[in-house]
Design a binder for these strands. Sequence first.
DNA 1: CTGAAAGCGCTTACAG
DNA 2: CTGAAAGCGCTTACAG
Lengths: 338, 338
Amino acid sequence: MTIAVIAEEAGVSVPTVSKVINGRPEVAPETRQRVERLLHKHGYQRRVSPGDGPVGLIDLVFAEIESPWAMEIVRGAETAAREAEASVVISVLHTHAGPGRDWLERIAARRTDGVVIVASRLSTGLQGQLSARSMPFVVVDPEGEPANGVASVGATNWHGGLSATRHLLELGHRRIGMIGGPGDMLCSRARIDGYRAALETAGVPVEPELIRHGDFLVDSGHDQGHALLSLADPPTAIFAGSDMQAFGVFEAARQRGLRVPADLSVVGFDDLPLARSAWPPLTTVRQPLQEMADLATRMVLAMGRGDSAEARRVELATDLVVRESTAQPSLTPSSSQW
Amino acid sequence: MTIAVIAEEAGVSVPTVSKVINGRPEVAPETRQRVERLLHKHGYQRRVSPGDGPVGLIDLVFAEIESPWAMEIVRGAETAAREAEASVVISVLHTHAGPGRDWLERIAARRTDGVVIVASRLSTGLQGQLSARSMPFVVVDPEGEPANGVASVGATNWHGGLSATRHLLELGHRRIGMIGGPGDMLCSRARIDGYRAALETAGVPVEPELIRHGDFLVDSGHDQGHALLSLADPPTAIFAGSDMQAFGVFEAARQRGLRVPADLSVVGFDDLPLARSAWPPLTTVRQPLQEMADLATRMVLAMGRGDSAEARRVELATDLVVRESTAQPSLTPSSSQW
DNA sequence: CTGAAAGCGCTTACAG
DNA sequence: CTGAAAGCGCTTACAG
């Protein structure tokens, strides 16, 4: 949008528009008002940098970045961006409600090449606005069901939940607690469904009191871990839904004098680098976070180039990594001491 | 000061100067250097016209982002940027040698508002180039001594090293191991000097075999921890230099059947969020990483606005946080068992 | 109060 | 790798 276009539309000359923009006094009030209205309507801004083509920026949008989980996503995105000679811009919304209009206007102004939205809600309105500005976007681990035609990247969460639970069943556990993430996150629902499927296949009843929800961070693992261990008939194993929640369960277990894994088996989900050096080393379901973000970033970059127009849903494989936080159940778990 | 004047003085054409400013590759190295020198000498800045203000981007430059340490820095920078309605661009150089020319050209092309360089070397050449493009920059935790007049932010590392070591001395330890970071990092040298100062003040001899160097990550804590514990006369306490290295020392201790803190006391440095939920909860020196990055970002933003021209060195306070990884030395540390 | 014309600083396309 | 020429968006000086 240039002042020439505004001038044309307002039926005045280019210098007149220039005078309005610069607050010169010698402009007739009606002319000024007409021009101002048009400037506002078109969201006029001085041209950023002459010359089009990609700016070399990909926006990576988080609801929050409290967990080391986010760092893995950043690393993956950065790898893909660097290979394409682009850079990653980090936005943190501090709300799960999805980006608002100011955010949209800011990234529009800087003419980003594409947007990767991480674990955040995406209103249909926002989708329309991104498309209207021909801004490619891909969602990683969508919260809520992504609309049709929206490109997204996730992991095989259902299968991960299944194999975590099956591992515990094979060790001999029958009362297995589950701490999921937020109820509206797709990845969390899939993990819980995998857990259910494993129990049902093994003929073990699914007990609602054993299924809890957290926010994937340490504190909710701690709180829900205590809640589960306070039950009249407490679980002998907990599938914690995320590594951070598993660490919270570790804490809760220690506070109750329970040894992991002798008195309580714990399985995480993610396989963050920390899982290996935790004590005890955490049995967990590995999801390839870096590859997920790398792929999402490549997809957005490709969409920007028009290379592959088709939006798609990709799920990368998860793997159970058995370490030392799981073992056979002891006979009298809750009465054991160090 | 216009590019026409610079061109005249450099004996080149206006387009050539334009190319240098915009980081175009097709300029001969000597020409580029001559022009850059003149740009810097005259403090060239693009003519400010209403509407072509800041772009709203701050570049945050890491050598690596493997540790959760980096996430704290990102969070701090993001907070400051968001308040200024700007965004943070992440660059990872994957080398400690400092950014190269391509990187510089890319950020020049996108006309970033300022650069925050984290724990990375900064050649004098690069400083000149940043100045030539009137790009404000601030260094967080510089590697090597930052040149005069370079703005930098750090923590009171010397004092932190002193208080960590004094804490161990007060508990009764006399053989205290130290694992520093890379030898050329200022913050590491200061921590080691603080350690020495505490020992000397207490009249405890400083033994070179007890001082090791790592890279601040888990594995080097593990390796150097084993090295220290293999000594004929092993230490009863280790000041690990970083939280990640402390976790590595935890691992090494466990592998040798040593209990922390009964058989070995361990102190970290950083107070990452994880330190609290580790087992045992880690005694560590807290440095305010988020505030450090927040401040550095504010400084760069202010420099871009011309608010505070004076470059300065700021050190934020560190605090000893005593948790459960430190205790009095046992009488026969290395023969204890679980 | 307005706008045709000249001009500004800068960038781009292209010939050498 | 360089620069003459053309062009960009915008502003200024000035005639009407």
